[in-house]
Write a protein that binds this DNA or RNA. Structure first.
Lengths: 216, 216
DNA sequence: CCCGCAAGTGATCGCATGATCAATAAGCGG
DNA sequence: CCGCTTATTGATCATGCGATCACTTGCGGG
């Protein structure tokens, strides 16, 4: 059994680079991880390796040449998906008092939204959360420590009163924004194509409610 | 193999009703569904029927005497879990202009929270959402039509301006509250034991931001 | 041009899981 | 107390899936 086209005298016809049969290991490995991210995002973490192989156009056994077992593949998927999801700049951005608080929060959540309103990310995060992966708790703890709590400090500093806002308040703000992505990618509900206007509205409502309208 | 206790002359020892071997079909069926709800909430929708049977203390084959196949069992689980999750009273409650808007919203979200901040509900809702079940979209559409849009009307009526608040704004409010349950039951993060105070704060912030403080 | 390394394949193993069915025994009516 | 109905069991089948391995073949270096 060969690829396609049984016509005589037809060369392998390398229409493009992607038809190449043999790839350098590093490249193939990356290709498998990429496909696995998209595949497990669709099918869930117990999607089977035969279907994944089918998507890749290779045999199932090849996957196990690059990963000792499925768990190792999943860990590569996690690493690929969780990597660089939180920018190291955001912590400083949020503390940069040369900019208005509103400006900082909008910039942060705008950039954060760009990174997390992503089909594969949202779904794999949710799948691994449901599976009880510790990764999620570590991610959220890190998010809280490096971003939400600094944001809390800045808000309290701006308002001048510490009792005006609590960590839970910031989780609610955060949830209101993240929920846009959940509705879109988990529940497949219609949401605005561009989430930025709603992000701005949520932040403005939040600031207005603690006495800091857009004017500030 | 018998229950426990190999001592001589010990009767079947019906310590309680629950040790009974044979149950009336209706009762056994309900028992299976109950256990399945809790089981699939823990393990995900592809938890296996042998482990479920183990929890029930019956054989795996018995489950298939009550349900033609696993899919039928899952549908019974959905029906049991989705049933009565939205009270028919809430729609009227939200429109009851003899009460303040704040009071109505707090009452609604307090009662709503009581019903959805539930381990099995949250997880099965999320599992079925990820699996692409249409049930979730129907549930959320229903929620929007019967509760969020009426709430929107009431808010607009109260504020006197229609452009002060959009449907998306209400989804963000909703998300901010629901996210408490997601953090607790999906991500297993620490959250306040009683969510009510935070619910009140979220609603008060929302109302304050559109010029309707707690005083109104 | 062709040799040899290793990327890729195909067949297969063992186990888990959904589903089936004949055999068993619990418990009720008489 | 007996016998019948049927709830429940235990054994078994078929299939799907992770994993392994001997082999084949693409392809770069000499």
């Amino acid at each position: 059994m060969r690829g396609r086209d049984e016509g005589p005298m037809t060369k392998p016809a390398p229409t493009a680079e992607q038809d190449r049969r043999r790839l350098p290991p590093q490249e193939r490995r990356a290709q498998i991880v990429d496909a696995a991210v998209s595949f497990f995002a669709d099918e869930g973490l117990d999607g089977n390796t035969r279907d994944l192989a089918k998507r890749l156009g290779v045999t199932q056994s090849l996957i196990f040449k690059y990963f000792d077992n499925k768990q190792a593949l999943l860990e590569a998927v996690y690493a690929h998906v969780y990597l660089d999801r939180i920018s190291p700049d955001w912590s400083d951005l949020l503390r940069d008092r040369s900019r208005t608080l509103r400006d900082r929060m909008i910039t942060f959540y705008s950039e954060y939204g760009d990174r997390i309103f992503d089909y594969a990310w949202m779904r794999i995060f949710m799948f691994s959360g449901l599976a009880g992966a510790d990764l999620n708790r570590r991610y959220l703890t890190h998010l809280s420590q490096t971003l939400l709590l600094p944001m809390l400090d800045e808000i309290r500093h701006e308002v001048g009163r510490d009792d005006a806002v609590t960590p839970e308040d910031l989780w609610s703000l955060h949830g209101g924004i993240v929920y846009i992505g959940i509705r879109k990618h988990i529940y497949k509900m219609p949401v605005p194509a561009d989430p930025l206007p709603e992000i701005v509205r949520v932040i403005d409502r939040f600031l207005a409610s603690i006495g800091h309208g857009p004017a500030h």
